[in-house]
Amino acid sequence: MSPRFQGYCFVAITMCIWGGFTIFSRLNAQWHISAWDIVAIRFAIAFCILMPILIYKKDLAFLWQREAVILALIGGIGYCLTVYSAFLYAPAAHAAIFLNGCIPLCTAIAAYILFKQPFDGHTWLSFCIMLGAITLMSFLMMQRDHVSFGVGDLLFVMSAICWGVFTVLLKQWKLSAWHSMASVAIWSAVIYLPVYLLFFPKHFTGVNPIHLMIQGVFHGVFVVIISTLAYIAAIERLGAFKTGSIVTLAPFIAAVVAVPLLNEPLSASIICGLIGMGIGALQPWRWRLKDTLTIELEKQKQKSD
């Protein structure tokens, strides 16, 4: 298979998992699984899988770096607690708008604040589109739906901030995909699980064991391990922008699928928000630009000629 075809295969895998993340996280509310419990299950399963592999490979030195702990606190514990809590209060469509739609913007702002990376023209245009979409959606929600934003929407924005900071730090520190994923999984478990066991309430008694098993396997294996490795592999073959643009579609598709699957509402205001935030996040006007893989192949062809 060509590198490009491999890249699209990895993108497809990532999209399925990311789209499923929205659906499965929303199912926690229907299955009465608390955010504290699902986060603990996610970290515990990932730890039990990854730690023996790291010990077998004698690849533990990277865990003692300061960067590994910081990434776990922000992209692991901080992100998971806010995003899983948000899904208990807000529908899947709100996640596509306030989480996935805001992630590119939060990433750009974090890069500017932390490392003084200026906004380019594409970021400014995306910002204007997203701001207009949220303004229009807010007006329609208050005028037609007679509802306003809630705590779930605020938690989604906080999740986007955590993921934006995490992405910038990850890029700046240049850790490998394997070490980045393992650092987040291992340290998140080491830090969070003792606190959870000692202080957080548990709600396993009223939950169907099959539901716990399904959520544990999906979030602990597919989300933490498989999607991370597939996403990084896709970036290496297709470039960061094209990969990010394609996989960003998954949560927006999941928001539409959640309407018949989870009986969630989809009003005109939410549709406006989905369209506006989707355009701002995907930046379709940049699709005509060549991706990094194409540029690299052209350089190699020129050298061979």
Rank of each mutant, 00 (worst) to 15 (best):
L289T: 01
G132W: 03
A92C: 02
E296A: 15
S34F: 02
S126N: 04
L175M: 15
P284S: 13
A185Q: 01
P284M: 09
Y196V: 01
K57S: 14
Q30S: 15
W163T: 01
K301I: 14
H179W: 12
Q65G: 08
R26I: 01
N100K: 10
F24K: 09
K303R: 12
G280A: 12
A96P: 00
G239M: 07
L71A: 06
G132A: 13
Q143F: 13
V207S: 04
P260D: 08
L170H: 07
G216T: 01
W163K: 01
P284A: 14
K116S: 08
R288D: 05
R4L: 09
I41Q: 14
V223E: 09
D305F: 14
S183Q: 04
I161Q: 02
A96T: 01
I210F: 15
C102Y: 05
K116H: 08
I134H: 01
L125Y: 13
H122W: 13
H146N: 07
K58H: 05
A250C: 08
I17D: 04
D120R: 08
I161C: 11
Q215E: 03
T292L: 13
G121Y: 06
Y231R: 08
Y8V: 06
V165R: 10
N208C: 12
S138R: 12
Q215G: 00
F241A: 09
I70E: 13
T123Q: 15
Q65C: 04
V190E: 03
M137Y: 02
P265R: 04
F43C: 04
L136Y: 03
R4I: 02
K171M: 03
G216V: 00
M130R: 04
R288K: 14
N28H: 08
M142L: 14
D59W: 09
N263G: 08
M158I: 13
Y231D: 07
